[in-house]
Write a protein that binds this DNA or RNA. Structure first.
Lengths: 229, 229
DNA sequence: ATATAGTGTGTAATTTTTACACTAAGTAAT
DNA sequence: ATTACTTAGTGTAAAAATTACACACTATAT
């Protein structure tokens, strides 16, 4: 049962917590392992860092292989390197979180061979995870909770045009608590980084809400002042 | 000139930004390298992670070898892994910051052979640093700037008993700006994690200030509520 | 006794945060 | 056309937090 993989002498890998938002739930992408150890378990997608890749490049590649998408927003957040975290040798792994809007169709073409399949699972109902991936996930969620209060990362989970209610929903899911509608709007608008569009939401069976867009230029200008939600 | 070190095929190291406060200035510990590459340059202390060490253990060891002290407060904050950051091969390094009070005498017994000497240098006047160590330092400072607003890390830079003025001084140095004395005191006392002692400062040629102690128990109790400076 | 240097304290003005509920607009069904 | 339904969109008052600001006190040194 104990087999030593040749490359597992001292390996450096990257694992990604890829958060996706489909308009209703916050989910993460997990893969079902096809190999020992932890065969048939759910795990965070990850891979070995290539010899000529930077760390960010490597994380990008992993996300690309997983979703077929480039340019996903992501950020490194913690290294996990307990000597026993991998049963077959020393594997130090660097965790990234990434954020993506779901509901398109192109996403999700998992390809690598070590995975049977990949699935978006709601964070409210996650299975047991392989290795120390639960710890990695926990820390990742903690990280975006903190980050969303200061950085405009919520927009990464939304389509380019979104309503204030959708935006609030994202905040509520990540922070794990309800927010007051009026106060939320007051505050988020006061930052001055949202551009109100002339367009309205479409295809809803009730009053359509105004659409907004995140104004990157404006944000860049105000950048000295950090947002503080 | 280009020599390939045998172990530099794919190496994982740790570098530490060790901040020290002597009551007046904020300094970091730098070593003067005795080896190529960057011989005679100043660099952050660092070392290779041992095969059976956890990452934190490894950082502890490095700090111990450098200072002779155990139990220094430290925290991992970022991994630097550009393929070209080390001229002789792929070295991925994990950065830690650490905080220590200076003015004792036991500190500083640098021993490793790759360093000529180690020195505390004020952060206001740092030399050019080897490798990408400037970037690592910058990010470390940024990190503690952020962290000091939410976590009680300032106390790590002070003796167990300290005055409010000393505490304010630490905040000012790290945040890089002057703070209002009355407002600072009001706020810091309102957190309820400082214990006022019956003792006064000694050996000053002016009115002696009251000494305080950081009340860890109390902080642990209030921990749910995060401090927000 | 006097000069010196840092300690320790209060208040008013301003800004930010919080709590809270109803009308307006559009769609769907009849 | 009316009605029922669902979400959008809005204001205000109270409370809390933040800011700006100056002087008398105390200990020591000479």
């Amino acid at each position: 049962m104990e087999q030593i993989l040749p490359h597992l002498d001292s390996v450096f890998s990257i694992d990604c917590v890829l958060f996706g938002f489909d308009g209703k739930e916050l989910k993460i992408l997990l893969i079902e392992r096809n190999e020992e150890p932890f065969k048939d378990w759910w795990a965070l997608p990850g891979n070995i860092v290539g010899p000529d890749e930077s760390l960010d490049q490597s994380a990008s590649r992993i996300l690309y292989e997983l979703t077929g998408l480039r340019g996903i927003y992501m950020e490194q957040y913690y290294a996990f390197g307990d000597p026993n975290r991998h049963p077959q040798g020393r594997v130090i792994t660097l965790a990234y979180y990434a954020l993506i809007r779901l509901g398109g169709d192109k996403e999700l073409r998992p390809i690598s061979t070590y995975a049977k399949r990949a699935n978006w699972l709601p964070i409210t109902d996650l299975p047991k995870l392989a290795f120390d991936h639960q710890k990695i996930y926990d820390k990742g969620l903690e990280k975006i909770k903190r980050r969303i209060k200061h950085q405009p990362i919520a927009f990464e989970l939304l389509p380019e045009k979104f309503t204030l209610t959708q935006l609030q929903h994202v905040y509520e899911l990540i922070l794990g608590k309800k927010l007051d509608k009026r106060n939320f709007r007051k505050k988020i608008v006061s930052f001055g980084v949202l551009k109100e569009l002339d367009e309205k939401q479409k295809g809803v069976s009730y009053r359509a809400a105004t659409l907004y867009r995140f104004d990157k230029r404006r944000y860049a200008k105000l950048f000295g002042k950090e947002i503080s939600f």
